[in-house]
């Protein structure tokens, strides 16, 4: 664990909490793309399946549980509890145009052709483009609430910090994962605007 990864995880956690609280407090999900939130829930589900098989640390396990819990709670608030405030006709990004190519790429380019590894690779690729429906929705409505911009900033910052974490780990531990790094660069670039 290094400072970049820790601040990256905290920034990610902050983004997830900011969004959940915003929807809960304002009792509205106006301006929020439910499709992006579904994609994030899918990212966490496919990436954290190893919750059932391997224990790395209390921090690792508890963060994974929190991420999965919050992401499903956010999807629940958007599509069930505050469904009336969901702006469906602006949230019109065709997510199948993301999921299908990402799924195909995960099957083609991965480190190991095992189910868990392919699902992990799928989640890495999907995470890098999962924010597109949200960015698309903001471009259509032409505006983003302040809180949404904070959410996007924290979310963008998290993966940028992970890039530094990978540089750190390469330099000090000789560890690198090209798939995570390339997807991380794509993800960070997407947030830059």
């Amino acid at each position: 664990m290094n400072v970049f990864r820790l601040t990256g995880d905290l920034s990610h956690l902050a983004a997830i909490i900011i969004l959940l609280l915003k929807i809960w407090k304002t009792r509205s999900c106006a301006g929020i793309s439910g499709k992006s939130q579904i994609l994030f829930a899918l990212v966490f589900t496919t990436r954290y399946l190893d919750l059932l098989t391997s224990f790395i640390s209390l921090y690792n396990t508890s963060m994974k549980v929190i991420y999965i819990g919050c992401s499903y709670a956010t999807v629940y608030l958007i599509y069930m509890k505050f469904r009336a405030t969901y702006d469906g006709n602006h949230d019109s990004f065709r997510v199948e145009f993301l999921v299908v190519p990402v799924g195909g790429l995960a099957v083609l380019i991965n480190h190991d052709f095992s189910p868990l590894e392919i699902l992990w690779t799928f989640s890495i690729y999907l995470e890098s483009v999962a924010i597109l429906p949200q960015l698309f929705m903001i471009s259509k409505t032409g505006e983003a609430e302040t809180i949404t911009t904070h959410y996007l900033f924290c979310l963008g910052l998290y993966r940028a910090l992970y890039l530094f974490n990978w540089i750190w780990r390469y330099y000090f531990e000789g560890f690198f994962d090209m798939i995570a790094i390339v997807a991380g660069v794509v993800q960070t670039v997407l947030y830059c605007d």
């Binding site: 990864r5 995880d9 990610h12 190893d50 391997s54 790395i56 640390s57 690792n60 963060m63 994974k64 991420y67 480190h111 190991d112 992990w120 992970y162 974490n165 000789g174 560890f175 690198f176 994962d177 090209m178 995570a180």
Partner: peptide, 10 residues
């Protein structure tokens, strides 16, 4: 080649 991948990252 297989990188030494550890899934200790979130």
């Amino acid at each position: 080649k297989k990188q030494n991948k550890t899934k200790d990252e979130l």
